[in-house]
């Protein structure tokens, strides 16, 4: 590992890297949870193709955050311009809707279908609300089976709205964690003439055995904490014992 730059600056950068990495640790399980819940919800709605789109910027654009189904990989990070198509409408109006025969002139999906080779025929779209804000759109495309697909029913629309509440909470948590991560990464990607050397140094820090061990420990704690109250309390007691042990040793060492 190269020599750190001057002490304060290096400490700040080290904390920054840790912040970014902890944020990654937070966002990755969230995207996994969103995908899992999306898959469960899609099964309830008799559908294999579903996606979560999130607001991207201040103009009302949308971006595919999570998708499942045959063309999921192609959809990821694809953008929907503000107000365009069913998803754009649902985001701006806050009203869920279903369309039974999207067809070729459903402007946005016509473009997506052209790129992916998929054929969008039925769409069920419902807003993702967190608090008073619409933060994205939950979409289900085509029922299971072979075309022509039966339309999505009002009951399925209600079920989608219920799932949308839970998915919106996860998306909001993801966005908070991502904001944390982006903040760090934006600082790193500024126009500072020293940026390349800082980035090289940071990469080395990230690759260091000490840093990896620290992140492994963070992941371990998160996993234990997610197993339940008893495990969380036990982990806390053990860690507090370790801290007390460490303080005692430091103290002994100092006096000695």
């Amino acid at each position: 590992m190269p020599e750190p730059r001057n002490g304060d600056f290096s400490d700040k950068l080290r904390r920054l890297v840790e912040t970014v990495d902890v944020a990654n640790v937070l966002t990755e399980p969230l995207t996994h949870s969103i995908k899992s819940l999306l898959t469960v919800s899609a099964a309830q709605i008799d559908c294999d193709e579903a996606s979560v789109l999130v607001r991207d910027g201040d103009e009302g654009d949308l971006r595919f955050l999570i998708a499942i189904g045959r063309v999921a990989d192609q959809l990821l990070n694809m953008r929907v311009p503000a107000g365009k198509g069913i998803a754009g409408f649902v985001l701006s109006s806050g009203q869920p809707m279903a369309i039974a025969d999207a067809g070729e002139d459903e402007t946005f999906y016509a473009e997506v279908d052209k790129e992916t080779g998929y054929s969008t025929q039925t769409i069920l779209a419902t807003p993702l609300r967190h608090g008073d804000d619409v933060i994205g759109v939950l979409e289900y495309i085509n029922r299971r089976g072979t075309p022509p697909f039966a339309p999505f029913t009002p009951d399925e629309m209600d079920r989608a709205s219920t799932f949308a509440g839970a998915i919106a909470s996860l998306v909001n948590a993801y966005q908070s964690a991502k904001l944390f991560r982006d903040l760090g990464e934006n600082i790193l990607s500024n126009d500072d003439p020293d940026a390349p050397s800082i980035r090289e140094w940071l990469e080395n820090v990230r690759d260091s055995a000490e840093h990896r061990e620290m992140m492994d420990l963070a992941v371990l704690i998160r996993d234990v904490a997610s197993r339940g109250d008893a495990e969380r309390n036990l982990a806390r007691e053990i860690l507090e014992s370790v801290i007390r042990f460490s303080e005692k040793n430091e103290s002994t060492s100092f006096l000695g």
Binding site: S93, Q95, P96, M97, A98, I99, A100, D101, A102, G103, D105, P151, F152, T153, P154, M157
Partner: peptide
């Protein structure tokens, strides 16, 4: 529910929603 309605471009779509 599955209301047949005019759609941009001259066609029609079957739509569901309070809208």
């Amino acid at each position: 529910v599955n209301v047949r309605a005019a759609w941009p471009g001259g066609g029609y779509r079957n739509l569901t929603g309070n809208s």
